[in-house]
Nucleic acid binder design. Structure first.
Lengths: 253, 253
DNA sequence: CGGCCCCGTTGCGTATTTTGCAACGCTAGT
DNA sequence: ACTAGCGTTGCAAAATACGCAACGGGGCCG
């Protein structure tokens, strides 16, 4: 496609992990040193890159600026933010907001736990479609045919004892989620955390995103986790209302 | 430099402001439609771009991922985070963290005010060197010669009544900041907010960043703002210590 | 129903832009 | 003084990106 662009994006991805020197970048990317340098210069000129005190290259302010700007553009995020902050304040637990982006479910906002035990996640990462609670919630709203298509295409990496590993299991789970109006992740992704998620709908009644609590099992057992559900659903419904959703409307997909 | 790359970065900057269609992007960037499309395709393939429901192009998850990853790489940010969170909790006011990046002072972290009146800022933006308190703090640590060089190169846009408008005024201010160990922004940037900032030092004693409180004048008058100073400095010193700074060391730049 | 406008897409020939090579300069460390 | 690591430059070759012109499919309006 566009060679130089793709190469530059790849360099940025490398630099996101850690600052590096020219030669390091050139060798790990199999691109000639000279070429790498020219790309870096362009990135630097546009402030996507800076050299740090050690003389290494690292990503620069323009990247952060575009990211935060673009994130603000997402209506869902804007509307949800105060509600999610409230959920976080009330419970002290990690709150995530996820949205469908193409064929992936992406975390677009996060509020850190107030407890010392944290879980690992990051804005911009994708949620595993067969294990994350937020993904289940979003998939559950899709037409059955699409669900089957997606379920057939996953590779069901077994991340813990409880991970669903077959399309059938996933489809059955999605049916449950759809009926009950929320989803769980009972240590299906990471053994040490479990989650509950609930859908967010817009004026058309379609699910446009999901919010979740992620809690280390050492803090709350499954039973206590479920006690957070009313609070969560209260929050997601408030967000949905802000998006124009009317609750008494018959949700006829 | 690298034409296609620079063009692609420019497209991303456009899209950060708002989602757009192919033709819109082509016309505002003076690049042929076909070319724009090919660049967009490359960006899309790398997940820097997605099409939204309306069929428009918007920035995608990879951008967010790289940004948050790269931000985590910044040692200062990592170390400062819990301290800043505490400052934010204690006071409820907006807390900023800024760092020198090349010849610019960039906001690399932010904790929102708990009060309804917020101020406008964004991670990745640069601070105005002649008015922002965080910038003053960082500049104040530089050698006099460098200060003069920078002071001579600014364009002193007058943003409020109180904005410093001459190199002399700025240099005098920097001397004061250096002596007193903190800086103010008395409605010099925005008439409705004032700030106080304090330096963060690493093991070498050099100033590596600054943290600040930004408070709307309607919430606190200047006198009350200054009462936040002990809390702020307490926080920045704690961060400095975490970075290996030893307080009794004579600060002989 | 027909025509129009907006949006994205494709094929092709050209030449501009990017690429790789080889060699150089600088600094720091031994 | 020698070496190793890092970034930089000039140049010639060609691969890559470019612009053009034209197509196709919706959706909207008359």
């Amino acid at each position: 496609m566009s060679q130089s662009l793709v190469r530059a994006l790849d360099l940025m991805a490398q630099l996101a992990k850690q600052p590096a020197t020219l030669d390091e970048l050139a060798s790990t990317s199999n691109v000639h040193k000279t070429t790498v340098m020219r790309l870096l210069h362009s990135l630097e000129a546009e402030h996507f890159l800076v050299r740090n005190n050690a003389g290494q290259f690292q990503l620069g302010r323009k990247l952060f600026e575009l990211s935060s700007l673009a994130l603000e553009q997402r209506d869902l995020r804007q509307v949800a933010r105060p509600h999610l902050a409230r959920l976080n304040d009330q419970t002290g637990h990690t709150v995530h907001l996820a949205e469908l982006e193409g064929a992936e479910v992406v975390y677009i906002d996060k509020f850190e736990s107030h407890h010392p035990v944290r879980m690992y996640s990051r804005i911009g990462l994708t949620a595993a479609l067969h294990s994350a609670a937020v993904a289940k919630v979003i998939l559950a709203d899709m037409p059955r045919s699409r669900q089957e298509q997606i379920a057939a295409g996953l590779d069901y990496v077994k991340m813990t004892e409880n991970t669903l590993t077959t399309p059938e299991a996933l489809l059955a789970e999605l049916a449950t989620v759809r009926d009950q109006g929320w989803a769980q992740d009972k240590s299906e992704h990471e053994a040490i955390v479990h989650c509950v998620a609930a859908p967010i709908r817009d004026a058309s009644g379609r699910v446009v995103g999901a919010a979740s609590f992620s809690v280390p099992v050492v803090l709350l057992n499954y039973e206590d986790l479920l006690k957070l559900l009313p609070i969560l659903i209260n929050g997601t419904e408030a967000i949905s209302k802000d998006l124009g959703w009317v609750s008494n409307e018959r949700n006829t997909r």
